[in-house]
C-alpha cells in the first residue's frame, strides 16, 4: 500500500533533483525549470501531509485543509515567478544574445 512515506520520499527526491539542477545546469531557462521542480516537490510534500496527517487532527479540523490551500497559493506564486523570471531572461538575452549563466560575469568581486 502506498503511504505517506512514499510520497514524502518522492518529494524529497524531486526537491534534491531540482536543487541539483539549479547548481549543475548552465542554461538560465533550465535553471528556472529546476526551481519549478523544487516548488512542485514542496507541493507534493504539503499534499502528503494533508492526506496522511502525522499528528491527531481532532482539535484542529481546519488544519488538514491548510496544506491543500497552501498548494494553490504556491502554484499561483510559481507562475508569477516564472513570468518575471522569463521576462528577465528575455531582457538579458537582448543585451548579450545568450542565456548561458557562465557568461554573466560583468558583476564580479
Amino acid at each position: 500500500m502506498v503511504g505517506p512515506v512514499h510520497y514524502l520520499v518522492l518529494a524529497a527526491i524531486l526537491f534534491a533533483l531540482g536543487a541539483a539542477g539549479v547548481v549543475i545546469r548552465r542554461n538560465a531557462i533550465i535553471v528556472l525549470m529546476s526551481i519549478e521542480i523544487m516548488l512542485n516537490a514542496v507541493n507534493l510534500s504539503f499534499l502528503a501531509f494533508s492526506r496522511f496527517p502525522l499528528v491527531p487532527v481532532a482539535p484542529m479540523q481546519a488544519g488538514i485543509y491548510a496544506g491543500q490551500v497552501a498548494v494553490f497559493f504556491v502554484i499561483a506564486v510559481a507562475a508569477a515567478e516564472a513570468a518575471v523570471g522569463l521576462a528577465i531572461v528575455i531582457a538579458v538575452f537582448r543585451s548579450r544574445t545568450s542565456v548561458h549563466v557562465d557568461e554573466f560575469d560583468t558583476l564580479k568581486l
Partner: peptide, 18 residues
C-alpha cells in the same frame, strides 16, 4: 523553495500553518 520545503515539514509536524 527551500523555505517552503521547511514550511511543509512544519505543517507535517503540527498539522497547521498558524
Amino acid at each position: 523553495g527551500v523555505m517552503l520545503y521547511g514550511m511543509s515539514l512544519l505543517y507535517g509536524l503540527f498539522a497547521t500553518t498558524r
